[in-house]
Design a protein around this nucleic acid. Structure first.
Length: 136
DNA sequence: ATACTGACCCTGG
DNA sequence: ACCAGGGCCAGTA
C-alpha cells in the first residue's frame, strides 16, 4: 500500500468515525484520533474535515458526514482562515439543538457535560472508578 | 525537491 | 489560572 493510499484510507476512517457521532452531540478532534487508533494526529483529523467534498455524489461529503459535530478539546469551535466558517459550524450545531455559547473573546463554545459524546472504546479510559468488579 | 502551515493536543513552567 | 514548547504529518506554496 503506497503512502498516498494510506492517506486516503486515513481520510475514509476519519469520516466513518465522524459519522458515528449522534445527532445533537459533539466530540473533539483528539477523541476522533483516538477512536481510529492514531491518538497522535488530531491535526490530521482537522485536515480531513477541511478537505471534505462539497459534491453530493462523493462517497463522503459535507452532507453525509456531520463535520460540525467535531470541535476542539477546549470545547470551542476552532477558528480557521475564514471566520464565517466557525459561525457556519455554530449555526449547523444549533440547528440540531445544540446550545452554542459565546465566550469573552468571541469564541463559540459548547458544553461537553451536556453535549459531549465520549464512547467507551478507549483503551485507557477503561480502568475507571467503577465500583469493584475486577473480574479479570 | 525543500519549507512553511495548520478546523490540534499534551506537558511543563 | 495562563503561556511556551514540542510533537504530529498531509497540504500547500
Amino acid at each position: 500500500m503506497a503512502r498516498s493510499d494510506e492517506a486516503a484510507a486515513f481520510f475514509a476512517t476519519v469520516y466513518s468515525a465522524v459519522r458515528e457521532i449522534p445527532e445533537g452531540k459533539v466530540t473533539s478532534y483528539g477523541h476522533i484520533a483516538k477512536l481510529i487508533g492514531t491518538p497522535q494526529r488530531p491535526r490530521q483529523v482537522g485536515v480531513c474535515l477541511k478537505h471534505l467534498s462539497h459534491d453530493a455524489g462523493a462517497r463522503f461529503n459535507n452532507v453525509n458526514v456531520p463535520w460540525q459535530r467535531v470541535i476542539n478539546a477546549k470545547g470551542a469551535i476552532s477558528q480557521r482562515s475564514q471566520p464565517s466558517g466557525a459561525r457556519n459550524q455554530a449555526a449547523a450545531l444549533q440547528a440540531e439543538g445544540v446550545t452554542v455559547a459565546t465566550g469573552a473573546l468571541g469564541e463559540l463554545t459548547v458544553d461537553f457535560a451536556e453535549y459531549g459524546w465520549f464512547p467507551r472504546s478507549l483503551p485507557s479510559e477503561e480502568e475507571s472508578e467503577l465500583d469493584d468488579d475486577d473480574s479479570e
